[in-house]
Design a protein around this nucleic acid. Structure first.
Length: 566
DNA sequence: GAGTTTGAAACT
DNA sequence: CAGTTTCAAACTC
């Protein structure tokens, strides 16, 4: 049994996703209270309202940072604090101790009174004591990869760390532990946890392919200054940039990977320097490092194949797209209804005395269709595209008249409500879409259903494309790994690695890689979201090679991200 | 597993 | 607010 969840009913909506050295909270990204679509549709907006600073901690269910699933918390070993001080991870996280190895624990329901006093005392010292330590930097565009759960979040330690000896490259450092770069809030000394830090990069590269022992050796080397080409008198201007470079992620652009010296980390060898520099689409460094990576694949640090695919701007584009889909659905709905009404009028005029059993709702061409029976993807999309030019006011739709009941799903609501201001007001839709035209308040439940279906369908298609990309990458890396294992017989010809992906895919039994038929449904996607279709996700089967997926978008994303310095 | 190191929290 | 102490996790051996 995990930590029991207290039922204090206090308004603390977040859940500690992952317990860190102290209380480090990822809830801004991983709240169960936030629908998935919320997270996706609002990539640049805070997902939750800030809680009251005085909100006492409600014991919460620890969540895993990666998948947002309930996670068995780590048990504390407190001996002297009675688990009533922030030293105690459980207490700091707002959970009861349960199954911990602590001594004289008072952080349990039996000692609720004592605990409450401790909470009060803690809050008195620091009203924000139980608030998340990691701010999510909602104003900074976050890398989409983070949302996919593969990369460290972009965040910022509210108080900052004060490390002196660890170089902020060990888990002593809360920033490091939270997978964020040190920021201007930090008062650390000799910090190496900043964008562009070679020590950190080396750590990352080692991490990609080495055993943890090597990893820590690299960290030690980095901290002691033994690593790197320059002893690293880190230029202050580069230090502690805010959350820009993705920590432990793909790191620098792929094309950059082979350039940096790894210094005296003996295990870090460029086993295929030529491939790293000659290939226009160099493999992700996972396979670039060190024999252990090849000989002991079980010791790889997992890194998603989609790590480089989705960039922040794509998310924005995607949000626009989904909003547009919704608008166009409304327009199509209006037209449909007009047509239907005319038809009904005509039928009524023909058969004035037989309204009951005609059951137009049973007829897919006449009445409201059951949601499950609708197949909006193809037909609706095309319809919407066709109707788009009409520029009809969607709010004029009489959709849902007389319809009661099925409310718009929270996801859809969130999606639409949040996007209308930021997207539509900022850049008016070419089709003349106006947020005021959204028939939010008209009770058009059927229309909402259609819109929801369309949006979700679009979203599904997007996810499928991502899956496809992941498969292609998988095949690609498979090919590359094979090459590494037999370098003599598989010298990289001329840097057209990705072209081999389909071959590898076939070898892997992935015949679906070459064709991306899902793109057929995503006319919006392809037409409106150039990023998705052109750069990141192959929108057509003619672009199955990921040529631009692995490297360049990362470069762009980083350049953008590096705009703001400390 | 014991001992050491580390840095946040607590305290003065 | 700065310095010191306490504490528990991270780390080393």
């Amino acid at each position: 049994m995990d930590k029991r969840v207290m039922e204090s009913g206090l308004p603390q909506p977040d859940f500690p996703v992952k317990k860190l050295a102290r209380q480090l909270d990822f809830t801004a990204f991983c709240s169960t209270s936030a629908p998935v679509t919320d997270i996706i549709s609002r990539p640049t907006l805070p997902l939750q309202k800030p809680e009251s600073p005085r909100a006492p901690p409600r014991p919460r269910t620890p969540f895993d940072a990666k998948d947002c699933t309930p996670k068995k918390p780590k048990q504390c070993n407190c001996k002297n604090s009675k688990c009533l001080k922030l030293y105690c991870e459980c207490f700091a996280s707002g959970v009861y101790c349960d199954g911990c190895n602590c001594v004289n624990c008072c952080n349990n329901p039996e000692n609720e009174a004592t605990r409450h006093e401790a909470v009060e005392a803690t809050l008195e010292r620091n009203p924000n004591a139980f608030r998340p330590k990691i701010a999510s930097s909602p104003n900074a565009p976050r890398d989409s990869r983070e949302e996919l759960g593969e990369l460290p979040m972009v965040g910022k330690h509210n108080k900052g760390c004060h490390c002196k000896k660890s170089g902020c490259l060990k888990k002593y450092c809360e920033c490091f532990q939270a997978n964020i770069l040190c920021s201007d809030n930090c008062k650390c000394m000799d910090c190496k946890n900043y964008e562009g830090s070679e020590e950190r990069r080396a750590l990352f590269q080692v991490d990609q392919g080495m055993h943890m022992t090597y990893l820590q050796q690299a960290a030690n080397a980095a901290i002691t200054g033994a690593i790197g080409s320059s002893g690293y008198a880190s230029p202050p201007i580069n230090k502690k940039r805010k959350n820009q470079e993705i920590f432990f992620g793909p790191g620098p652009p792929v094309k950059d990977q082979g350039v940096h010296r790894l210094g005296p980390i003996p295990q870090t060898n460029h086993i295929k320097t030529t491939s790293a520099t000659s290939s226009s689409v160099a493999p992700v460094p996972v396979f670039k490092v060190a024999p252990p990576a090849v000989t002991a694949p079980s010791k790889f640090t997992f890194r998603s194949l989609l790590a480089d695919v989705v960039q922040p701007e794509y998310v924005t584009e995607f949000c626009k797209l989904l909003t547009m889909v919704s608008v166009e659905t409304a327009k199509a709905f209006a037209v449909d209804n007009a047509t239907k009404e005319k038809e009904i009028e005509r039928i009524k005029s023909d058969q004035p005395e037989n309204p009951t059993n005609s059951a137009p709702s049973q007829n897919p061409d006449n009445g409201p269709k059951p949601l499950d029976d609708r197949k909006p993807t193809d037909e609706r999309s095309s319809t919407n595209q066709a109707v788009k030019t009409n520029g009809e006011d969607s709010s004029s739709s009489d959709a849902g008249e007389g319809q009661k009941g099925r409310p718009m799903s929270p996801s859809t609501l969130a999606l639409m409500c949040d996007e209308q201001d930021t997207l539509f007001s900022a850049a008016a839709s070419p089709s003349g879409a106006n947020p005021k035209r959204f028939p939010y308040s008209q009770g058009s439940t059927e229309l909402y259903g259609d819109q929801e279906m369309m949006v979700l369908t679009e979203f599904r298609d997007c996810l499928r494309k991502l899956v496809t990309v992941g498969r292609m990458k998988e095949a690609q890396f498979s090919t590359y790994a094979t090459k590494i294992e037999t370098p003599a017989s598989h010298q990289e010809p001329d840097g057209n690695g990705p072209v081999q992906a389909p071959e590898a895919a076939q070898r892997l039994g992935e015949p679906t890689i070459q064709a991306t038929p899902l793109a057929r449904n995503s006319t919006h996607f392809a037409s409106n979201s150039s990023h998705f279709s052109g750069n990141s996700v192959p929108a057509t089967s003619s672009n199955p090679t990921l040529t631009t997926n692995v490297g360049d978008p990362v470069v762009n994303g980083e350049n953008k991200a590096q705009a703001s310095n400390k």
